[in-house]
C-alpha cells in the first residue's frame, strides 16, 4: 500500500512540478506570473485540441504523431500566454499582479470555451471529451518495469513526461547555478539596473524566461489531461493545481531541484486523505488544505531565518525602467 501511495503521490505531483519549474524560471527574471494557473489550463486544452483533431482525422493513430501533435499544440498555446504576459508587463510595463490574475481568468475561460465546444462536437452524453488512444500513447511505460519488484514500481512505472518533468527541473537548476547566462538571468531578477549596467539585455531575459517558463508550465496541463486523467477532459476538472504550483515555488524556495521533492510532498498531502481510514467528508476537505498550510509554514520559517539566499528575487513583481534624468 505504501508503494501505491508513493506512486499516486508522484503522479499527483508531476503537474505541479512542471508548473512550479516554469514559474521559478519566470520569477527568477523578476516576473511574478500569477497567470500560471491559466497558462497550465491553456496548455492542457491546447493539447486536447491537437489530439482531438488528429484522432478524428485518422482511422488508427500513429503513436509518434499522437504524442508529437498534442505536445506541439501545447507548446504553441502556452507560448502564446507567455508572450501576452511578457508583452504587457515588460514592453508596456503593466502591473504584474493585475496582468497575471487577468491571465488566469482568461486562460480558464479559453480552456472552458474550447472544452465546451469540443464536447458539443462529439455529441457525447457525458460532459467530457475522451481521448483514450492518445492517452494510451502518452502512458506507454518501460516494458520491463514491473519485473523489477518494488524498485521498478516506485521508479520506473511512469510515463515519459514524468521523467521529462524531473529532467527539466534538474536542467533549470543546473542552468541557474552553473552557466553564465543563468547568472545573468538571476542578476536581472535581483537587480535589473545592475544587470543593465553590465550590458545584459533585461528585456530579452525577461521575455525568454517568461515564455520558456510558460511552455514548461503548460506541460503540466498536458500531463494532467493525457496522463493523470487518462485522456478525459472535462471543464474545471483541473482544479486549483495552478495555484498549488505557485505555492510550490515558495515551498521550494525558488529552487527547481527542491521542487522535485516538494512536488512529491504536495502530491502526497493532496491524496493522503484517501489513505486514512474512517475520515468523514469534512475531514477529507480539511486534509486537502494541507499543502497550503505547509506553504504558509515554510514562508514563516524562511522569513524568520532571514537567510538572504532563501528570499524571493529582490525585484520580483517590479517593472524595470532605465532611469533617465
Amino acid at each position: 500500500m505504501i508503494i501505491a501511495f508513493i506512486q499516486r503521490a508522484i503522479v499527483q505531483g508531476i503537474p505541479l512540478l512542471f508548473g512550479s519549474t516554469g514559474e521559478i524560471l519566470t520569477e527568477k527574471s523578476g516576473n511574478l506570473n500569477l497567470g500560471t494557473a491559466g497558462v497550465m489550463y491553456v496548455g492542457g486544452i491546447s493539447g486536447v485540441i491537437g489530439a482531438f483533431l488528429y484522432e478524428s482525422s485518422v482511422e488508427t493513430v500513429n503513436p509518434v504523431l499522437a504524442v508529437l501533435i498534442p505536445i506541439l499544440a501545447c507548446i504553441l498555446g502556452s507560448l502564446l500566454m507567455g508572450l501576452i504576459y511578457s508583452f504587457l508587463t515588460v514592453t508596456l510595463r503593466a502591473n504584474q499582479n493585475v496582468t497575471g490574475l487577468a491571465l488566469t481568468t482568461f486562460g480558464v475561460g479559453v480552456g472552458n470555451f474550447f472544452g465546451g465546444s469540443l464536447i458539443k462536437l462529439t455529441d457525447s452524453d457525458l460532459p467530457s471529451i475522451t481521448l483514450t488512444q492518445t492517452s494510451n500513447c502518452f502512458k506507454t511505460t518501460i516494458p520491463f518495469a514491473d519485473k523489477l519488484g518494488w524498485f521498478g514500481d516506485i521508479f520506473l512505472t511512469y510515463s515519459f513526461l514524468a521523467y521529462v518533468a524531473i529532467a527539466v527541473a534538474l536542467a533549470v537548476s543546473f542552468w541557474f547555478n552553473r552557466t553564465r547566462s543563468g547568472l545573468s538571468l538571476r542578476a536581472v531578477g535581483e537587480n535589473p539596473a545592475t544587470a543593465d549596467a553590465a550590458g545584459i539585455s533585461v528585456s530579452k531575459y525577461k521575455y525568454l524566461s517568461t515564455c520558456v517558463g510558460s511552455i514548461i508550465a503548460g506541460f503540466g496541463g498536458l500531463y494532467y489531461v493525457m496522463d493523470y486523467a487518462c485522456g478525459i477532459w472535462s471543464n474545471d476538472a483541473f482544479g486549483d493545481r495552478g495555484w498549488l504550483a505557485i505555492a510550490l515555488v515558495i515551498f521550494a524556495i525558488w529552487r527547481p531541484n527542491m521542487s522535485i521533492i516538494g512536488s512529491i510532498v504536495f502530491g502526497g498531502l493532496l491524496i493522503v486523505h484517501n489513505y486514512i481510514p474512517g475520515l468523514s467528508f469534512s475531514g477529507q476537505e480539511l486534509f486537502k488544505m494541507a499543502p497550503y498550510v505547509v506553504t504558509i509554514l515554510v514562508l514563516i520559517v524562511i522569513s524568520m531565518r532571514q537567510k538572504r539566499e532563501n528570499q524571493p528575487p529582490a525585484s520580483l513583481g517590479l517593472s524595470y525602467f532605465r532611469e533617465e534624468r
Binding site: 547568472l183 535581483e190 549596467a197 539566499e309
Partner: peptide, 11 residues
C-alpha cells in the same frame, strides 16, 4: 554601487 546583493564578489 551597482552590485547584486545575493551574489558573491566573484559572481
Amino acid at each position: 554601487f551597482k552590485l547584486v546583493d545575493v551574489f558573491s564578489a566573484a559572481e
